[in-house]
Design a protein around this nucleic acid. Sequence first.
DNA 1: CCTATCATGTAATCCGTTACATGATTAT
DNA 2: ATAATCATGTAACGGATTACATGATAGG
Lengths: 195, 195
Amino acid sequence: MSRSTLTPISYLVLGWTSFEPATSYELKRLSADSVGYFWEFPHSQLYAEPARLTKLGLLEEKRELTGRRRRIYSITEEGRQALGDWLREPTSEEPQIRDIGLLKLFFQDALEDGNVVALAQAQEQAHRKKLSFYEELDSTIPHEAGFGRATLQAGLIFERAFAEFWSEIAAHPPTAFIRSDRRARDKTRKRVAHE
Amino acid sequence: MSRSTLTPISYLVLGWTSFEPATSYELKRLSADSVGYFWEFPHSQLYAEPARLTKLGLLEEKRELTGRRRRIYSITEEGRQALGDWLREPTSEEPQIRDIGLLKLFFQDALEDGNVVALAQAQEQAHRKKLSFYEELDSTIPHEAGFGRATLQAGLIFERAFAEFWSEIAAHPPTAFIRSDRRARDKTRKRVAHE
DNA sequence: CCTATCATGTAATCCGTTACATGATTAT
DNA sequence: ATAATCATGTAACGGATTACATGATAGG
């Protein structure tokens, strides 16, 4: 029990419930509609995680008596404390950018007949699409929308930068680098045989 | 067996071995020193994944006869095919940005006594540090370094943009948005009781 | 020769993903 | 009424993360 640390999803759930009690489905909607734009959390986790947090005493579960008998979670004092501690502690952790497009770009060296331009165009288009979505959002939400708005600015910046990046790649596609350089490493290798 | 799909790590391993055969440790070094800058893969995966790919017939394993008896993996024709198919297929998938800093920023609304400036400064510093690391790298690697260099450009752009973003937050910290708006939702809620 | 770090894994557990399932609501 | 979609979960599995462990190599 003791060693179960809190993960980002834990803080996501604590964060939302710190505003007001919520069901798993509400957590899902809220998240999909905000943080989910840049960091997706699978909905099954938003059903599993509150149960875990309840066991840890950071949430409390109530249940509807009729109809869907939904579980409604509210944050406890310990929960609020844990969330506050986490929020107050600055972090120097670097973001992970899990970008399939970049990964594909990186390994294009493996192909002689690749089509980088197609990749770059698909990526540029995807980023531009998200960018206009963000712009639309930005123009509709109130100006005093707190930190949610600040996060949205990060999204705007990111999408702009990457649309720009991919457009540049499409315009001036790099050429593959042929690698053939196993000498150095082979010196350190022992004799090798099958199986 | 059949249903085991290939994940990003699979393609990472296929990608590296497509250049030349490698041990798990080499995969780890190579990755940590390139893609790992923006997308980290735990080293234990780089021991587990090649075994999996070997079972699927996409890699072949040889073993040293003496000393450490390391396992050396080379790509098979099927492997090369799978990698090529993947590389040639453009993707519109959007990147996931798993950024603890942004997540913390987003939920600062939950605090009345938060210290956003400290957070923003820590983040800005981290991004600037990585940025100068990239710049150093960029100035040392050969100009015809293929797609690896292109990927590095993305890194530079990203770090610059985010350093800029956090510096802006530090200079003009947003203020919290007080939420209290449970009316709408409560209308749809059934009666509730403990346990 | 001793120590530190590099290199090479294994184990246990938990998280994440996908798929399935089904009861309410809303739209036509 | 029926179909479609919304809402609310559960199950199963495999991948991901963290810890642990230990044998080589190099540096002092």
